[in-house]
């Protein structure tokens, strides 16, 4: 459970507010440029990859003079936040094609976990007779 600190309102609340930042592709793809359009001209647009994670990474897109459109090529797949001093929103950056290592880890993990559970179930019931009731007399196990 751990930390609940609701300072997070500061992060969650903008995401719930109506979006003033729009993208030419609402689900951009890693490595493929998209245009970000803003309601008001700004000189800086901050892109945070994996916001609020311990490995968050920040890029700054700059425009001189201030502009309402920025060209952005997402460097990482995953949730990213786009923010200006006045507004902000989150966007999901899709993977470019299938992630081979991701599928590999998923298959290995799934096989080990579900396979391991299945194997352990097999062992559990291997020696069991038809009835799985242990029917233990407590007297057989005196206090140690």
């Amino acid at each position: 459970m751990r930390t609940i600190a609701l300072l997070l309102i500061a992060f969650v609340w903008p995401a719930l507010a109506p979006a003033q930042i729009s993208l030419s592709d609402e689900q951009p793809v890693q490595g493929e440029p998209v245009t970000i359009t803003l309601a008001e001209p700004v000189s800086e647009l901050i892109v945070t990859y994996r916001p609020n994670s311990s490995i968050a990474r920040v890029d700054t897109l700059r425009a001189e003079p201030p502009a309402t459109a920025f060209l952005w090529t997402p460097r990482q797949a995953g949730v990213a936040s786009l923010s200006t001093p006045a507004e902000g929103r989150n966007v999901s950056v899709r993977f470019q094609g299938l992630s081979g290592s991701g599928i590999f880890v998923m298959i290995i993990a799934g096989t080990l976990l579900f396979g391991g559970a299945g194997f352990a179930f097999y062992i559990l019931f291997k020696d069991e007779e038809e009835d799985d009731t242990l029917d233990i007399e407590l007297d057989h196990f005196p206090d140690t």
């Binding site: 609940i4 300072l7 997070l8 916001p51």
Partner: peptide, 19 residues
């Protein structure tokens, strides 16, 4: 989280009750 671009800023309670 990904489909709706949700960003869990806190932990359990924020994720389960807000996000």
């Amino acid at each position: 989280l990904f489909v709706f671009a949700l960003n869990p800023a806190g932990t359990t309670l924020s994720l389960s009750f807000f996000v």
